[in-house]
């Protein structure tokens, strides 16, 4: 497949609205570009997770979605469940917050790494395994071949999240949604995971949406940042601009909460 040139738009979200009983997300615009990491920040409950689940079409049945989500020209809203299944995992992949919850404890790493590969890419068992070993190598899980036969609980938290990333990369998707990928991890391994995301984004021309409530994480890897508050995007800027000159009062408040900031000290983690 021909990759879009670096920086060209891959996933475009226009005027996204989500209602579950009551309106929860309003008029969100986002543009994910190949090889770039788009950060999405905001306090907990501001609608970040809902937005990323809307992209995969995984909102609860009772949700109504308005606006447009287009993947390289294809409108995703309004696709049938069957059509969406060919997008999920294949063209848009997701990494969840807590790998000890998002990996099935009773299924081997190998099977979890290969079942969607075999479905999407129609690979045989051996080919899928070879691919899985390659991926585990890429995300720096030690002893990749023997790791396939092991279970998630036999790995450390950081390694588990690497496995989850390998799972997401397995079908060579165009878009990666990472929802708080470091929040559940030890501080000591967070940087490694972020670094890995940065690397794979660049080397594969992957458009990444990095969701986090932690602006510290943003400042480490995001190219562009959007800030959400109560279901709306209130500020949008490049990383440098945002950290140098935040425009919106809410963004300043968030920045003030960062440890070591010159502004008033506030508890970290909103």
């Amino acid at each position: 497949m021909s990759r879009p040139a670096g920086g060209s738009p891959v996933l475009t979200i226009r005027d996204l609205g989500i209602t579950i009983g009551r309106p929860l997300v309003h008029g969100v615009d986002l543009e994910l570009r190949a090889g770039r990491i788009q950060g999405l920040a905001g306090e907990s409950g501001s609608g970040k997770t809902l937005t990323s689940m809307a992209v995969l079409g995984l909102l609860p049945r009772t949700a109504t979605t308005t606006g447009s989500i287009s993947l390289a020209g294809t409108e995703l809203l309004g696709l049938t469940e069957r059509q969406l299944r060919d997008v999920r995992g294949r063209r848009i992949a997701m990494v969840f917050q807590d790998p000890s919850a998002s990996l099935h404890p009773q299924i081997t790493v190998g099977q979890q790494l290969t079942d969607h590969v075999r479905r999407h890419l129609r690979l045989g068992r051996a080919q899928a395994r070879a691919r899985a070993v390659e991926l585990l190598e890429r995300v720096q899980v030690p002893a990749p071949a023997s790791a396939l036969g092991r279970y998630p609980h036999q790995f450390s938290g950081g390694q588990r999240q690497r496995i989850a990333i390998a799972m997401a990369l397995a079908c060579d998707p165009e878009v990666l949604l990472a929802d708080e990928p470091t929040t559940a991890l030890d501080v000591t391994v967070q940087a490694g995971i972020l670094h890995l995301l940065r690397e794979v984004a660049t080397e594969r021309g992957l458009a990444v949406l990095l969701v986090t409530h932690d602006l510290g994480v943003m400042s480490a890897v995001a190219d562009d940042v959007a800030v959400m508050q109560q279901g709306r995007v209130v500020e949008r800027a490049s990383r440098a601009e945002l950290f140098a000159a935040p425009q919106h009062p809410y963004t300043r408040q968030l920045l003030a909460a960062l440890p070591g900031s010159s502004l008033e000290e506030a508890p970290r983690g909103l």
Binding site: L58, L84, R85, D86, R88, G89, S102, R119
Partner: peptide
């Protein structure tokens, strides 16, 4: 559970998700 959501997010069909996960 999150792992069932993750299995759906991988694009597995409902049959596979129910039986396998």
């Amino acid at each position: 559970s999150e792992y069932v959501r993750a299995a759906r997010a991988k694009g597995l069909g409902p049959g596979r998700v129910v039986v396998g996960y």
